[in-house]
């Protein structure tokens, strides 16, 4: 059962050369009770995808197609006005990227919480505060103290937790975290991840974590979706995807992660740079110019995201077995990284 079903979602941005897709035909399920990790480099469209789950793509962007079915709410792309506002926060809790800095510095946390309650027309504000305190306490914060604090009195890790309190205080069943551990040091990152897992389990949420750090996400996620150039290129159960990556990009991403175990010399950074809105390939596979497995067909037809075995999908023309046994991307040291836009 899925709490959120995204189907064929396309999000476009207006540029000087017309409307360009930042997310192109993405389909993704957030399964009830599971943590889904959405991994991609900067510019892969992962944050845009996450924002469209609130139907809050900022101008000059728009949802150009597809549906987002949220359990108990309906198709989010068709909602507007008050219904949409109720869904945001009420059904879907969102913790923004750099939420460490997204609190109002002039108001105490408690006051901002009351503002949130009033704007959502919560009748019983006392109960809201009580629930926030309870959430904060369970996350290892001193609820009373935190509500009386100003933003600057809290550390980065604490603010991140406050962000989660805000996202969940209205009893949202879906929790979305955008880069929750960026700019945190290792100890804070570990405790935030720990807390996300705990809160997720306690409240039986469906959680989506967006990150560029495949290492951090692998610690807590149940499922993994990999995004590149606005497309979801592979997804499946996390352990399985990490053990047997069948998309060359996933494989390269895993190989490019600095790890505390394993062979230092075996690790390889990804060559080249990730595409952005204007440089992403218009035809064929979006990854082909960085792909060691690319064949002729990759330049012509774009591979579809298809189920190739139970619970796993991939968008690649090359056989899974070839990718699995083939080489990781070839090294970068000394070789000039391609800088010019792919022609």
């Amino acid at each position: 059962m899925s709490e959120v079903e995204v189907r064929d979602l396309t999000v476009e941005y207006q540029t000087s050369v017309g409307w360009l897709p930042a997310v192109a035909g993405a389909s993704l399920d957030l399964r009830a009770g599971q943590i889904t990790g959405l991994v991609g480099e900067s510019g892969s469209g992962k944050s845009t995808l996450a924002l469209s789950l609130l139907n809050a793509v900022p101008a000059p962007g728009r949802i150009a197609g597809g549906t987002i079915e949220v359990a108990g709410v309906g198709d989010l792309t068709r909602l507007g006005g008050k219904q949409l506002r109720k869904a945001r926060g009420g059904a879907i809790g969102y913790v923004f990227q750099a939420s460490q800095n997204s609190l109002n510095p002039l108001k105490t946390i408690g006051r901002q919480l009351l503002d949130l309650g009033r704007s959502h027309e919560v009748g019983d504000l006392r109960a809201l505060i009580a629930r926030a305190k309870d959430l904060a306490n369970r996350m290892g914060l001193d609820g009373d103290r935190v509500l009386d604090s100003y933003q600057h009195e809290l550390s980065g890790g604490m603010r991140q937790r406050v962000g989660i309190v805000f996202a969940l205080v209205l009893n949202a069943k879906v929790l979305i975290l955008d880069e929750p551990t960026t700019a945190l040091d290792m100890l804070s990152q570990a405790s935030v991840l720990d807390i996300v897992r705990k809160v997720h389990d306690e409240n039986q949420l469906s959680t989506l974590i967006i990150t560029h750090d495949i290492g951090a996400i692998s610690e807590i996620a149940d499922r993994l979706a990999v995004m590149y150039g606005g497309r979801i290129v592979e997804d499946g159960p996390l352990l399985d995807v990490l053990r047997r990556p069948t998309h060359p990009y996933t494989k390269a991403l895993i190989g490019a992660t600095a790890r505390i175990t394993g062979d230092v010399d075996g690790a390889r950074a990804l060559p080249g740079r990730p595409p952005d809105l204007t440089t992403v390939a218009r035809a064929g596979c979006v990854f082909r110019d960085r792909c060691p497995f690319a064949v002729e067909v990759c330049a012509q037809t774009e591979p579809e995201l298809e189920t190739f075995e139970s619970g796993r999908r991939r968008a690649c023309h090359v056989e899974p077995s070839t990718v699995l046994t083939g080489p990781v991307l070839t090294g970068t040291t000394g070789t000039p990284a391609a800088v010019g836009e792919p022609a």
Binding site: G340, E341, P342, A343
Partner: peptide, 10 residues
Amino acid sequence: MAATATLAAS
């Protein structure tokens, strides 16, 4: 092809 693109960019 890539060279012309970078040249154009420069």
